[in-house]
Amino acid sequence: MSQKTFYRRRALAARLTKLITQEAVGSAVASGVFLTAPRRTGKSTFAREDLRPALEEAGALVLYADLWKDLTKEPGAVIVETVREAIGRDEKLISRLAIAPGLEAVSVGRVNFNVNKIGLGKEIGLTKAFEALSDETKKLIVLIIDETQHAITTDEGVAALFALKAARDELNSSKHYGLRIVCIGSNQSKLATLRNSSDEAFFGASMVQLPMLDKDFIDWYCKGLDLPHDLDPSDVFQLFQESGCRPDLLSAAADDIRFDFTVGPKAIVVRLAELVRAHAEALNANLRTVIHSLTPIQSAVIRVMGSKGEGFAPFESSTMELYAKAIANAGIATSEPKVEEPDVQLALMALQEKKLVWKTSRGVYAIEERLTVDVLRKDGLLDDLV
């Protein structure tokens, strides 16, 4: 695609590059760097088009694993394949690893695993692979993992993260050239599960909230729209903020205008606002359809999850009472019904299948997207559930 297709955030990329690659006393970046921003607000584009080139210009070898690209693939396998591809591009490395000895089973944090099963084959673990890559290239390696939270939904994904921790610790020793792991995600609470406890793979890693696209982006965007009538960037920026700072909503509305030959130049400004709001409402409408199609127990579970937030514990007695209260408040029962644990378990499984709920391999549940909580609250479905 043309360079003009992307809005460049070079200053932000340069600042993050300096922070990621630095070795300042007291810096926690060697433990990992977590970058978070809401979904569909441009964080992946920034990582690919700005951060990766900036890191490469700074002399780093950058590997990029997108766990969102193909959800049918095991997250741990995607990470391993990314390293395998980097190794496969260098014949010297392949020859070198072909004679590498196998590694033993190890214990890191709360997980016991055999690194040979997490690596590039029967006898090559991730640590050995990264060692060879580091020593051959003599460069700092930066592994960017997009939508990292998917890795902790499976046992293999968790094992891969702990294998990465082992590789990170080895490469950041004085023997090699360093390894930085940059984890990107759309949900800060999910990412935090990887760093908030001493028995997690990235305990103590830095958490960074990526700035949202700003007025400069809208100025650039309006100049490149090529519509029959110029738009006032101030008006468009207000609309952009109103719609959650999501560029795809602006683009969808602009395309609707381009292919509507009945819209006159003077009506474009008003029509753009109508279309952006319509597309935003359509997203909410689809979600509302799913929510209002839930069974009573499924509805009760997700409503209680929305009201409890990070404090949600699915099978505590107080939570079980709230499920019953939610069903009664919905007018489905004349009195608070008794809710059993198997009912809740089945409801949680169904909500996972509907992509409303997310679960880690340790059995921690959370609502998949913040938008779901916003819709529940706006529709009054969280009232009286405290």
Rank of each mutant, 00 (worst) to 15 (best):
G76I: 06
G76W: 09
I79P: 01
V80P: 00
E81D: 15
E81K: 15
E81F: 10
T82P: 05
V83M: 02
R84I: 00
E85S: 13
E85I: 11
E85L: 14
A86T: 05
I87E: 08
R89K: 15
D90F: 13
E91F: 08
K92V: 13
K92A: 13
S95L: 12
R96T: 11
L97R: 00
A98K: 11
A98Q: 05
A98T: 03
I99F: 11
I99M: 07
A100K: 05
P101Q: 06
G102Y: 03
L103E: 15
L103T: 14
A105I: 09
A105H: 06
V106K: 06
V108Y: 11
G109R: 10
V111I: 15
N112R: 15
N112T: 13
N114K: 10
K117Q: 14
G121A: 11
K122Q: 13
I124P: 06
I124C: 11
G125Y: 04
L126D: 04
T127K: 10
K128A: 15
A129W: 07
A129R: 02
A132R: 03
A132Y: 01
L133T: 02
S134G: 09
S134K: 02
D135L: 12
E136Q: 08
T137D: 06
T137V: 03
I141N: 05
I141F: 04
V142L: 08
I144F: 12
I144L: 15
I144D: 07
I145E: 02
D146C: 00
